[in-house]
Computed example of a mutant assay.
Amino acid sequence: MNDNQKPAGQKPAGQKPTDKACPICGRPAVEETKPFCSKRCADVDLSRWLGGVYRIESPDRPDAEEADERE
């Protein structure tokens, strides 16, 4: 292995691992992209939010509230 190669799984220089695990892949999170391990995992999470994968369910339907207000 020459000086330009890094062992598999090693983070690039400047990425300091934290004690928490990445919520996407489970690898150790790094300070620069906390709480994620990489920009890729942060982008995956953002895509899930924008795509509606993550959502908070409500017991009331918004259209039911509007109907009550009109009466």
Results as ranks from 00 to 15, higher is better:
M1L: 06
M1I: 06
N2M: 13
N2Q: 14
D3R: 15
N4Y: 15
N4D: 14
Q5K: 15
Q5S: 15
Q5Y: 11
K6E: 14
P7N: 15
A8H: 13
A8C: 12
G9H: 08
G9I: 09
G9A: 07
K11W: 05
P12G: 09
A13T: 05
A13H: 03
G14S: 10
G14H: 13
G14C: 12
T18C: 15
T18Q: 10
T18H: 09
T18G: 11
K20W: 14
K20S: 15
A21N: 08
C22E: 08
C22K: 03
P23L: 10
C25W: 03
G26W: 03
G26F: 04
R27D: 00
P28H: 06
A29E: 10
V30N: 02
V30Y: 04
V30M: 01
V30W: 04
E31A: 11
E32F: 04
E32V: 04
T33M: 08
K34M: 09
K34T: 10
F36D: 00
F36G: 01
C37P: 05
C37V: 00
S38M: 00
R40G: 02
R40M: 04
A42N: 09
A42L: 13
A42D: 06
D43P: 05
D43T: 08
V44S: 01
V44F: 00
D45M: 11
L46E: 12
L46V: 13
S47Y: 07
S47F: 06
S47M: 09
R48H: 00
W49G: 11
W49L: 10
W49K: 12
G51C: 06
G51M: 06
G51R: 08
G52H: 11
G52I: 11
G52Q: 12
G52P: 03
V53A: 06
V53R: 03
V53I: 04
Y54P: 10
R55Y: 12
R55S: 11
S58A: 07
D63S: 03
A64I: 00
A67V: 10
A67G: 04
E69D: 07
R70Y: 05
R70H: 05
